[in-house]
Simulated assay, not measured.
Amino acid sequence: MKNVTTRLAVSLGSLLLVGAAQAQENRLYLFNWTEYMDPEIIEAFEEKYDVEVVQNYFNSLPEMFAKLNAGGVSQYDIIVPSNYYIPRLIETGLVQKLDKPKLSNLGNVMEQFQNPSYDPDSEYSAPYQWGTTGIIYNTETFPEAPKSWSLLFDPEVNPSHPFALMGDGQVSMGSACAYLGHGYDCTDMSGWREAAQLLIDTKGRDNFSGFVDGTPALQQLARGVAHVGLSYNGDYLFFKEEDPETFETIDFMLPDEGAEMWVDAMLIPSEAPNPDMAHKFIDFILDAEIGAQLSNYNYYASPNAAAEPHLDKVLTQPPVQPSEEDMERLRFTPSLSGDQLQNFQQLWSEVQAR
């Protein structure tokens, strides 16, 4: 009986392993920002590769990073972080190098995104979309709003109307740095300390409504819960096109003191269940027509040079394509590591705690 039981256990174990392998081959787990993928693209990919795409969502990069560290590194096949988190993901071993021979469409990427500072030689990442982070505000409340971060940080400009800051510490700190004249991409301790104090003072105002990330901030403005916040240019245009009546009185601006330009990229976690299918997905998104379809759906700029002839006209003008003047003032959020990251996290913890 013992031998029979052992053989039965081995057989059942083999069947379970085969079943698990088949489940991985037939599924792709995508961890992405909310409202950031055309459902028709997912359907087309599922049909082409006879696979089921399971989508999960995050609203901020700290949320994504925390989930990966809590076991998500073995639960997702594709993640879509922003540029300044990519070095952190690489250094902590949470992502794997791309197998470039599997990416036939990699050559479609614009030259400016082919050897980025956040991932030299694009060893780990392929660009997904790019855009900007700016101020969203109610134009009826602020008919003569200054093109400035003062709409958030100066109590004389906004003495009483509810406003929110972004929950991503580096974005909020960068905004404060820019307002204070240190530049959005400030990384020196003296500038950070001054920015942190400004954020603490700003939090103490009666009309501060909290830390709210991009898409929820737009929803708050639509409901009238807040009158000023931070969001992304593509999210803003997406909501405005979907519901022009509600968003008629909401506008987006890039402050003259400087603001964020970002790139979101596709990476494969180090323990992804289905890395082969993940490469197929990345290559699918890098296709010229699919890349254009993605941007035409979510209203963000495409890093895909081959997609340009297929883009809608609205994607070639502000707010998706910033003006030349605004482009000159845009900066990447800096990538932090080591003591610099530790110092920043300590300051940001103080901001949140007070």
Results as ranks from 00 to 15, higher is better:
177 C>A: 14
27 R>H: 13
67 K>T: 13
310 H>D: 06
337 S>P: 02
196 A>K: 02
170 Q>W: 06
25 E>C: 05
108 N>A: 04
70 A>S: 15
139 T>I: 14
271 E>I: 00
298 N>D: 14
245 E>F: 03
166 M>K: 03
208 F>I: 03
59 N>S: 11
342 Q>M: 10
290 I>N: 13
122 S>M: 14
261 M>F: 13
202 T>R: 04
350 E>G: 11
201 D>S: 11
10 V>Y: 08
277 M>G: 15
157 V>F: 03
276 D>L: 09
309 P>H: 07
188 D>Y: 09
197 Q>G: 02
155 P>L: 02
172 S>V: 02
46 E>A: 11
248 E>S: 15
44 A>P: 06
5 T>V: 15
288 A>Y: 09
50 D>G: 14
177 C>Y: 01
167 G>P: 05
33 W>V: 01
28 L>N: 04
66 A>I: 09
338 G>W: 05
293 Q>R: 15
93 G>A: 05
197 Q>T: 12
117 S>K: 11
17 L>S: 12
233 N>C: 09
344 F>I: 10
330 L>W: 07
299 Y>I: 01
147 K>D: 13
194 E>S: 13
58 F>N: 05
54 V>C: 00
151 L>M: 12
322 P>I: 09
253 M>P: 03
145 A>F: 06
317 Q>F: 07
152 L>N: 07
243 D>A: 12
128 Y>R: 02
177 C>T: 09
8 L>Q: 09
195 A>T: 05
126 A>P: 02
211 F>G: 03
38 D>M: 03
1 M>K: 07
165 L>S: 12
148 S>P: 04
274 N>W: 03
311 L>E: 07
275 P>R: 12
126 A>S: 15
